[in-house]
Design a protein around this nucleic acid. Structure first.
Lengths: 246, 246
DNA sequence: GGATGATCCTAACATAGGTGATATTGGCGC
DNA sequence: GCGCCAATATCACCTATGTTAGGATCATCC
């Protein structure tokens, strides 16, 4: 039974282990943390809304989600993608309102981390707590890279950069191989994430395909030439906490 | 002597007090923290470089700085402005390399926070530590708003939004009044922060001036009509930890 | 007080990317 | 196997913003 839940929580443990070397005891603590209460959300539903106060923190167990902000007139910016092992709504100040919304892109399984559990963490499992804080910092680093991306890179550079990031992040948690990865992201999502229009994302995707850099169809993405794609994207993996690059 | 240093550290204390109600003891702790070692950097010099490891954390005592990333071909994106009271390089993991550079925009006075001091903080002054973590979270919220800004807003919206943010942040630390604020930011800086070109920033600044929304000259900025400017910018102050909006 | 350099301003022109509208495809429920 | 809907693909045209280039202004320093 415990081993069963451990299997589901493997991405979370694997993700946090990237930031701090975890002991077996730490892993057990994470398993206990994530096992208490899990929920499922269907695809295309909101998990959290901007302006609400988060009751609990969440860790993604399986599936894809994204956080986003929108403007009153409907324009929307995706701020980041959440993959298995990613923690969000980790609010140190329960009074503070969420400043962005979170939406499920696929059916998503989430672990709910109660405030009482989270508050006990610094004392009871300092390494786990540190790993969580470092994951937050790593997310901020990704955000900075995204700002550089939308602010300075051209359409093809942006798109290439985003695809590489998602490939590497999936690979780091064991969800991508040579053969590619499950990629439940539409071109409209890519548009909202890059600040482009869907039409122009389509043009750009085709340019990448024509150059034999990617395959992208039917919810599946394959990077055909990572080196060349990285050149185009001006990609530098340092901002991701992913050691082995190639 | 202590009172003298307290005067200089007032912005830091005032800034952190926004996140957690500080006791006199906490304030004394912050003063002691910031008083041990201070350095001055001349304008237009780098304080930290991407790829380096930070020896110490820094708090801005006076002056303006910015953090930025650049691409190999020289394109540069400003990721945020650092004002008095802002803490940066707060690295929980001393091994990790900085993922962005920091540059002084004016002559800047900095307090150096030694790792040993920072490490002692969670135990010795938990409220101060919490305030620091919340400031980091607030910075991440600003970053998300900037991504929305560059990704979705038009040039005039972007610029208006940035100017309002800088006005409100300065006012929150007592550096702006009805009469405006010291604004040591060139149009080229605004361009690098918004992902526009200096030429187009200039066009847009003039549009704002023509509509009697701002005065901006000689290192001084004045917001003439905050309400109207906020409408244009689609500005929502919630993302800033600044209570009294008007 | 003339030289220097940074900043700001302007204008003519170029283009990356946006808009709107209309196919086409493909997965999926019945 | 048919109908439906979302997602993808094209196309023609448009515009916000970029580019290049030059001139005006202003502070600083010898």
């Amino acid at each position: 039974m415990l081993s069963l839940s451990c299997a589901a929580l493997q991405p979370l443990i694997r993700n946090l282990d990237r930031y701090v070397a975890l002991t077996p005891d730490d892993r057990a603590a994470i398993a206990a943390l994530g096992d208490r209460s899990q929920v499922e959300k269907p695809a295309h539903t909101d998990i959290a809304r901007e302006g609400e106060r988060a009751r609990v923190a969440h860790a993604v167990i399986s599936g894809w989600a994204c956080c986003y902000k929108d403007l009153p007139d409907g324009r929307r910016q995706i701020l980041g993608f959440l993959l298995p092992g990613d923690v969000f709504d980790l609010n140190l100040d329960s009074l503070r309102e969420q400043d962005c919304s979170v939406s499920a892109l696929t059916r998503v399984r989430l672990a709910e981390l109660l405030p009482s559990q989270v508050r006990a963490l610094p004392d009871d499992h300092p390494r786990v707590w540190k790993a969580l804080l470092l994951q937050q910092q790593a997310n901020a680093a990704i955000l900075r890279e995204w700002l550089l991306n939308t602010g300075q890179r051209t359409a093809i550079e942006r798109l290439a950069h985003l695809l590489i990031e998602l490939f590497l992040r999936n690979r780091a948690i064991g969800l991508a191989s040579r053969e590619g990865l499950k990629f439940p992201i539409t071109q409209s999502h890519l548009a909202e994430a890059t600040g482009l229009t869907p039409v122009h994302v389509n043009r750009t995707v085709q340019a990448l395909r024509r150059q034999d850099l990617i395959e992208y169809a039917n919810g599946h993405l394959k990077i055909l030439d990572l080196a060349r794609l990285s050149d185009i994207a001006l990609f530098d993996a340092k901002y991701l906490c992913v050691e082995e690059y190639q």
